[in-house]
Design a protein around this nucleic acid. Sequence first.
DNA 1: ATCGTTGAATTGTTCAACACTTGACATCGT
DNA 2: ACGATGTCAAGTGTTGAACAATTCAACGAT
Lengths: 241, 241
Amino acid sequence: MTRVRSNPPGPFLMERSQIHRVSIADQVASILRQRILNGELRPGTSLQEVPLAASLGVSRNTMREATRILSLENLLKRSIHRGVAVSQLSLKDVQEIYHLRRMLEIAGILAAKERPSEVLSELRTALEGYARAVRERDWPRAVGFDLQFHSLLIRFHHNRRLESFYQRVIGELRMGMVLVDRGHDHPSALIPVHRKIYQLLAAGNLKSCAAVLEQHLDDSESRLIRVMNGQPPKRRTKRTV
Amino acid sequence: MTRVRSNPPGPFLMERSQIHRVSIADQVASILRQRILNGELRPGTSLQEVPLAASLGVSRNTMREATRILSLENLLKRSIHRGVAVSQLSLKDVQEIYHLRRMLEIAGILAAKERPSEVLSELRTALEGYARAVRERDWPRAVGFDLQFHSLLIRFHHNRRLESFYQRVIGELRMGMVLVDRGHDHPSALIPVHRKIYQLLAAGNLKSCAAVLEQHLDDSESRLIRVMNGQPPKRRTKRTV
DNA sequence: ATCGTTGAATTGTTCAACACTTGACATCGT
DNA sequence: ACGATGTCAAGTGTTGAACAATTCAACGAT
């Protein structure tokens, strides 16, 4: 739907200029990233270059570039002469990541002296997306929206480097969260908490908002760690793998 | 500064093992990184794959992997079908980086409830290294020690991801700092400030230390920005490029 | 059972080729 | 002169095949 006006030297060069203009290696990296973040490729899975490259119809060299990209994002782990495998989050990793979440998200809230309507709108979108995904039992998508909501809080720092770093870190966490048992515990319990955070934020009640957020992060961390330790919070003791 | 994973065992592996245990692409990336951070490759310089690969005795594919690594570190900028060039820091970049420095270094100080002697020792090493480099008029090395001192403050967060992120960010800044006019202004003026920061830190006087550090960062930023704006702080008006 | 040895499989690296894009130069029409 | 268009060399993006180096497991000798 290119809306072309009667404008002379215009904006319609942009379209392809940024979309079709990514190298195949980047595209392959995006595809693999998506598969990891959606839980289709589980941590520990080892990837072999030749079959993987063939399955995507690219050359081995291109596939190597793609895996190089993802290994620099910590989504893949490369052991020399032993191949690449999907990274596995350790308990220490999770604690480290939650340390960062507390530090950066809370500081983000407290720095939100002004709250652009655009960000608030994206927060609402993530809120609704999460609710819908939970309703539809789409766990990977729900996790995506959950973490998307939190990632948006980093926007208030107005720092692109920090945003991109945080995006990568949240990606690591997402990789670990999508594969906890989908019925781990009430995913819908998050909805009112997130809504509360949004309301306090939108109202400019930053201190209270930060307090609620901190509690929420603590809960989230201990819940995840409990699951990773092998004991599902409350429900069944289903064994995967 | 390539961090090597577990390095407990061998002493005499250095020669081959340390070097050979890393892919050639990584080695090439390290070499180029070093050249950029030392100012041998100035921002804006465009790099051509074939001659560069030939000059280092590696294949074009390997060189591409190396430039891919560095472009993900923001040291090189890749424009599709136009080649790679050494990145150029804008004023906005500098402000963004100093925003991060204030946020992370100060928080690091304030988190230093315990101060392992190992870190203190490394801080002293950086301190002395800086003084020696200034004495020897080795500006790139001085910048390296200066920023090394500050990077060490991030250790107190005890967060590997944060450390590695900060290392990259500081790398970007270093790239920009090494090529300011070497006689920009009294590089030796930093010595007492750094020493003061070290002393307050070692004494556990964290609040005062953070205050001095904040002032130091403010000074450092405004000095760098003044230079980048074309007006050297005091001395000659030498024009580069 | 322990320790080398062998060998297949896989990754690391190189090389040469081709497709595609870019930027500069030449050409053309006006 | 001047701008639009065409041409072309240079450089990057990508491929496929080859070889070197390394791992890992099976095997066999002691």
